[in-house]
């Protein structure tokens, strides 16, 4: 049920009355600033190509104004593209008729919003059932299935409350339940937790990860918070001025940041907690004990230090040997704070 292939090809978005006219200029490499200064058009997205892994969490990260919201809104076409395609299950969303698009939005995608965007005049239960009622599901039935989701996000007992009666965190649980209630395979989350306090944000991340374990949706998760991205993302794409400047799994991004912009992004991250030894494994074996490849540096350091040779073998989840790590390389990985120090080391 929960699978849908999602691919974005050569997507451009320019804001302004004569957007189409400027696509060639953008292709030739005019910068966002130049386009704005000389032609008064805003470059929203610049040649986005992304293959989004199925049933995984794809994080899209970037500073404010980098085009994250614009990008996610192309997937369900809340924003019309200037050129390019968004392919879901072999169909180009950007070419669908209005009727096809409505059907697509009802069945394939659902969305969670930064400021919750709940319907203030409807109760929690009506809000959660909203997607279903739009599809024409009978009210009693919609209410019944919405109940399951209200329970899953831990809001039992609040069915009859109005959004204004709930705290921010609770409101976003309603937003999440509303999005899940339609059983759509693709879940779009635009800075869904950014408006929440740090503690509540962590709670919500836990809820999301738990649900994802069970539901295995294709999730596009937008955030400007690196810790959140590393915690949730199976894959991360980093946007800058409407362009994807790096894409990969969290380990790759931390270990080999593509440029200064990204180094800057990751400079405050707690590397000991984030980097796993599979990222620094080298060929060969040694006489030290076995460590599992998903171990974080922090935990590996103790073991490495205890080992006589200051080396350990690395095994994968199945117990197969895949190589070794040394204390030196672990400390190295811990200290490399950015590209430039990286270069100085060599």
């Amino acid at each position: 049920m929960s699978d849908a292939k999602l691919q974005i090809n050569n997507l451009y978005k320019i804001f302004g009355p004569k957007a189409k006219k400027f696509v060639p200029l953008v292709k030739e490499g005019i910068s966002k600033q130049e386009l704005l200064d000389s032609y008064n058009h805003v470059l929203g997205l610049n040649n986005i190509n992304l293959t989004i892994p199925q049933q995984k969490v794809q994080v899209i990260m970037g500073l404010s104004g980098s085009g994250k919201s614009t990008l996610i809104r192309h997937i369900n076409r809340l924003i019309e593209p200037t050129s390019g395609e968004v392919i879901v299950d072999n169909k180009n969303v950007l070419e669908m008729s209005q009727t096809e698009l409505r059907e697509f939005r009802r069945k394939k995608t659902s969305m969670v919003f930064q400021k919750f965007a709940l319907l203030p005049h409807k109760t929690v239960s009506q809000n959660v059932a909203y997607g279903l009622t739009i599809q024409g599901v009978h009210e009693a039935q919609a209410k019944e299935s919405s109940h399951i989701w209200i329970e899953k996000v831990g809001l039992s007992g609040f069915e009859g409350h109005f959004p204004a009666q709930l705290s921010g965190g609770m409101q976003q649980r309603v937003g999440l339940a509303r999005a899940l209630a339609t059983d759509a395979p693709i879940l779009l989350m635009d800075e869904a937790f950014s408006a929440l306090d740090p503690l509540i944000r962590t709670d919500m991340q836990d809820i999301l990860l738990d649900l994802q374990n069970e539901l295995q949706k294709t999730i596009i998760f937008i955030t400007h918070d690196l810790d959140e991205a590393l915690r949730i993302g199976d894959n991360i794409a980093i946007l800058r001025d409407g362009k994807v400047i790096q894409e990969g799994n969290p380990q790759e991004i931390i270990m080999t940041p593509a440029d200064d912009y990204i180094s800057d992004f990751i400079k405050d991250v707690n590397r000991g907690k984030v980097i796993r030894i599979k990222s620094i494994v080298t060929k060969g074996s040694c006489r030290g004990p076995n460590l599992i490849s998903s171990l974080t540096l922090e935990n590996a350091l103790k073991e490495l230090n205890k080992s006589k040779t200051k080396e350990c073998n690395v095994i994968d989840e199945g117990g197969k040997k895949i190589g070794k790590v040394s204390l030196d390389s672990a400390i190295d990985a811990l200290l490399k704070t950015n590209v430039s120090t990286n270069e100085r080391y060599k």
Binding site: N76, R102, R105, T109, M111, A117, L119, I134
Partner: peptide, 21 residues
């Protein structure tokens, strides 16, 4: 609120559903 309208759209509301609901 524009975001609320976006939410209605994102669930596939028709113009009438959005207007009356």
């Amino acid at each position: 609120d524009k975001e609320i309208l976006e939410a209605a759209d994102s669930f596939g509301s028709s113009y009438r559903q959005k207007l009356f609901d």
